[in-house]
Simulated scan of single mutants.
Amino acid sequence: MLIIENGTIVAGAESFATAAELVAYAANFGRVIPADIPSQEALLRRAALQMDALNWKGRAVNRDQALAWPRFNVCRNGWVLPSNTIPAQIKAGQMALATEIHADDLSPPEQRLGAISREKVGPLETEYSTASPIISKPAAVRQSYAQFSGLLQSSSQVSLSRS
């Protein structure tokens, strides 16, 4: 069972979202995730770990907190966010990242092919172009990154982009 961080510095927290919330998110956005709860929870843990490596605005509320959030001194769109809550964008971003990680598990970006650039019918010969950088990007720079917009230090934007 996942231990959920709700903004109160939950000891041993592993996630901002529950497996049930991930299932609803995946259904709402047409994303594929594993059917079993242990695998869903594992994806959420993996996403939380990846999120810990990001360069967030502000600073952690407590030196002993398990995850990167909650945070002090985070300003988004001109508003200072409360330091005792988890922003909706963080929770949604974790779920987006979890679905992206699962997609990468099923089809790693480095193995994806671009459009067919040349095809010969007999004897069969097909050539693919290089995959678009957007398609081949790792999970951290896709839909989840849009959720994190305004919550990351600007220097992390450079570290997230990978051609």
Rank of each mutant, 00 (worst) to 15 (best):
residue 55 N to V: 01
residue 55 N to F: 06
residue 55 N to G: 12
residue 56 W to P: 02
residue 57 K to T: 01
residue 57 K to P: 10
residue 57 K to C: 07
residue 58 G to D: 07
residue 58 G to E: 07
residue 59 R to V: 11
residue 59 R to W: 06
residue 61 V to Y: 06
residue 62 N to M: 07
residue 62 N to Q: 08
residue 63 R to M: 10
residue 63 R to D: 11
residue 63 R to F: 13
residue 64 D to P: 01
residue 64 D to M: 11
residue 64 D to Q: 15
residue 66 A to C: 05
residue 66 A to Y: 12
residue 67 L to Y: 03
residue 68 A to N: 14
residue 69 W to P: 03
residue 70 P to C: 13
residue 70 P to R: 00
residue 70 P to F: 01
residue 70 P to E: 09
residue 71 R to G: 02
residue 71 R to W: 03
residue 71 R to C: 02
residue 71 R to M: 04
residue 71 R to N: 04
residue 71 R to T: 08
residue 72 F to V: 07
residue 72 F to T: 06
residue 72 F to A: 06
residue 73 N to H: 10
residue 75 C to Y: 12
residue 75 C to T: 15
residue 75 C to I: 15
residue 75 C to K: 09
residue 76 R to T: 12
residue 77 N to Y: 00
residue 77 N to L: 06
residue 77 N to H: 08
residue 79 W to I: 05
residue 79 W to C: 06
residue 80 V to S: 06
residue 81 L to R: 00
residue 82 P to D: 11
residue 83 S to Q: 13
residue 83 S to Y: 14
residue 84 N to I: 05
residue 84 N to H: 14
residue 84 N to S: 10
residue 85 T to A: 06
residue 86 I to V: 13
residue 87 P to N: 04
residue 87 P to F: 01
residue 88 A to Y: 07
residue 90 I to W: 00
residue 90 I to C: 04
residue 90 I to T: 05
residue 91 K to A: 08
residue 91 K to S: 13
residue 93 G to Y: 09
residue 93 G to N: 03
residue 93 G to F: 07
residue 93 G to K: 02
residue 94 Q to H: 07
residue 95 M to L: 14
residue 95 M to A: 06
residue 96 A to S: 13
residue 97 L to M: 04
residue 97 L to V: 02
residue 97 L to D: 05
residue 98 A to P: 03
residue 99 T to R: 00
residue 99 T to A: 01
residue 100 E to H: 00
residue 101 I to G: 01
residue 101 I to P: 01
residue 101 I to F: 05
residue 103 A to R: 10
residue 103 A to Y: 04
residue 104 D to K: 04
residue 104 D to H: 08
residue 105 D to F: 11
residue 105 D to C: 06
residue 106 L to S: 10
residue 106 L to E: 11
residue 108 P to C: 11
residue 108 P to Q: 03
residue 109 P to W: 00
residue 109 P to V: 01
residue 109 P to I: 00
residue 110 E to H: 08
residue 110 E to Q: 12
residue 110 E to W: 07
residue 110 E to F: 07
residue 112 R to Q: 15
residue 113 L to Q: 08
residue 113 L to I: 12
residue 114 G to T: 10
residue 114 G to L: 09
residue 114 G to W: 13
residue 114 G to P: 09
residue 114 G to E: 11
residue 114 G to A: 14
residue 115 A to V: 14
residue 115 A to E: 14
residue 116 I to F: 13
residue 117 S to Q: 15
residue 117 S to Y: 02
residue 118 R to L: 13
residue 118 R to I: 05
residue 119 E to N: 09
residue 119 E to D: 10
residue 121 V to N: 12
residue 121 V to M: 09
residue 121 V to S: 08
residue 122 G to P: 06
residue 122 G to S: 12
residue 122 G to C: 15
residue 122 G to I: 11
residue 123 P to W: 08
residue 124 L to N: 13
residue 124 L to P: 02
residue 124 L to S: 07
residue 125 E to L: 10
residue 125 E to T: 12
residue 126 T to M: 13
residue 126 T to K: 05
residue 126 T to S: 09
residue 129 S to M: 10
residue 130 T to Q: 11
residue 130 T to V: 12
residue 131 A to L: 03
residue 132 S to W: 09
residue 132 S to T: 14
residue 133 P to N: 05
residue 135 I to R: 10
residue 135 I to F: 03
